[in-house]
Computed example of a mutant assay.
Amino acid sequence: MSSEREVSKMFIRYIQDGLRNERIDRYRASRRLINTTPLEDWLLEEIREPYHLQDFTLTLEEIAELENFVDDERLSKAVATLSTADKMVLYQYYYDELNDVEIGSQVGITSQGANKRRRRALQRIKAAYENM
């Protein structure tokens, strides 16, 4: 039983790392496109708007195809089995780093509903991944 729990934790951590790395890659790519500004201007911009990574969030259409952002082909196929609502909750939890209360208020469900949807989505990914 404990080895199954450890595998689940490792799997969840893999998904978290993948989404976090995607966010970092998008941010770095956008920084290459921006003209270099003096350090003072950049610092002032950071002070005014410290959450600059929010500019690089996925659209609803991109979230519906979340599997396209997963590098591992087998995991990508497992994520593709989820509904758009499940993908949205996973994206908001792992990428936007929102808690269940915040997710619930945005999606229009209770925090317990958001938590249950997230856990079930992870179980579905795990089952689909193991059956491939």
Rank of each mutant, 00 (worst) to 15 (best):
S83M: 10
D72A: 06
E67L: 00
N21S: 12
L58R: 06
L43N: 08
P50R: 06
V70M: 10
I47A: 07
A64T: 04
D25W: 09
K77T: 02
L39V: 05
A85M: 07
T57S: 12
E22V: 10
S76C: 01
E40S: 14
L75P: 03
F69Y: 04
E49R: 13
R74V: 11
R32F: 06
Y27C: 12
R23V: 08
P38N: 13
L19P: 00
F69L: 02
I24G: 05
A85C: 07
L44G: 12
E22T: 11
E65K: 08
A78R: 01
N68F: 03
L44Y: 11
S76L: 00
L33Y: 10
T37W: 08
S30N: 10
W42K: 14
A64W: 01
N21M: 15
L33P: 08
H52D: 14
F69P: 03
F56T: 02
E62D: 10
I24N: 08
E65D: 12
R48S: 06
G18V: 03
P38A: 07
T84M: 07
F56N: 02
T37Y: 15
T36A: 10
S30C: 11
G18T: 04
T84W: 03
L19E: 01
T81R: 11
E61P: 09
V79N: 00
R26A: 08
E61K: 08
E61V: 11
E40C: 13
H52F: 12
T36P: 15
L33H: 07
V79H: 00
N68P: 05
E22A: 08
L19N: 04
A85G: 07
V70Q: 01
R28E: 09
Y27D: 08
